[in-house]
């Protein structure tokens, strides 16, 4: 697939042409600004292009869902953000949204309806799984991941918060990789330490950082790839791996990156 064919249409452009997308790709703040996580955004866009899905992004019209504000207790700020986003989304008559960020996913799916925003919300793990199941993403036999040990770190906002445990695992299994579980997984998965607005402040005094505790558990599995499905998990686990000085042996990657890689995108 040539990179030249990648396009990123915005909703404004589509609306101007009187078109509507199959899905809106909600990029999120980390997806837009975080240097490392931008790679995930790009990987996902490449997949969307390769599969030929008619999608759009809000581009400059997107803004923070308000998740960190609400979780840090600032309900005013959350609702200001939510309402202005809902105004934009409803203005474009958006029906279906896909996002790679479990926090955006949770907020739009569970918390926007009360404020007048009702959309079909899909996390990219579920979306990717569907594409694989439908054969729209064709997995090659014996790809680059064959036999490689991968462990999946559950995002709290995907797993416990919304019950999505299997979709990311199915995606990983399709890579033909050797999926190994950490001791605490699925409903007892340990948080990476980044949720609940912790991303934006130093942790409280303790005897260890949460991401280090979790990374140690991931390393114990012997996996060389730690797969994640959340921007904060990506940061926290990458930092954890650095802290353990294992960055040369162990990579932390998002599902979309792994799929894009396996497709040679």
């Amino acid at each position: 697939m040539s990179e030249e064919s990648n396009t990123v249409p915005t909703m404004a452009e589509m609306a101007a042409k009187n078109e509507s997308p199959e899905i809106l790709f909600w990029v999120g703040c980390a997806g837009s600004f975080d240097d490392r996580y931008k790679k995930v955004t790009i990987a996902f866009v490449k997949i969307l292009n390769a599969v030929g899905i008619k999608f759009a992004v809000l581009g400059p019209e997107e803004s923070c869902t308000g998740d960190p504000a609400r979780r840090a207790g600032n309900e005013f700020l959350f609702q200001m953000q939510a309402m202005s986003n809902i105004t934009v989304l409803n203005g474009y008559n958006i029906k279906k949204i896909v996002t790679a960020c479990p926090h955006c996913f949770n907020t739009i799916k569970n918390e926007y309806p009360e404020l007048g925003g009702n959309y079909e919300m899909v996390h990219h793990s579920t979306f990717l799984q569907q594409l694989i199941d439908e054969g729209r993403i064709k997995m090659k036999e014996g790809g680059a991941f064959k036999g490689k040990k991968i462990t999946y770190h559950d995002s709290c906002y995907l797993g416990r918060a919304n019950g999505v445990y299997e979709a990311p695992r199915k995606v990983l299994e399709s890579l033909d990789a050797d999926l190994v579980e950490m001791k605490r997984n699925r409903s007892t998965g340990l948080c990476c330490g980044g949720g609940g607005a912790q991303m934006w402040k130093e942790p409280e005094k303790g005897n260890k950082d949460i991401n280090v505790e979790r990374t140690e558990e991931a390393l114990q599995t012997g996996a060389t790839t730690v797969a994640v499905a959340c921007p904060f998990c990506l940061t926290m686990m990458s930092d954890g791996v650095k802290n353990k000085e294992k960055e040369n042996e162990v990579v932390v990657k998002d599902l979309a990156e792994l799929i894009a890689e396996s497709q040679g995108l």
Binding site: C29, V57, A197
Partner: peptide, 29 residues
Amino acid sequence: WNSMFQNIETNFAPWKFSASDRFNWANEL
């Protein structure tokens, strides 16, 4: 957290990035 709140208020993102740069990620593509 208060600075994070401020960032959301002024830049519509929890980090100190300008809102006008939000779509820059696509430049690469």
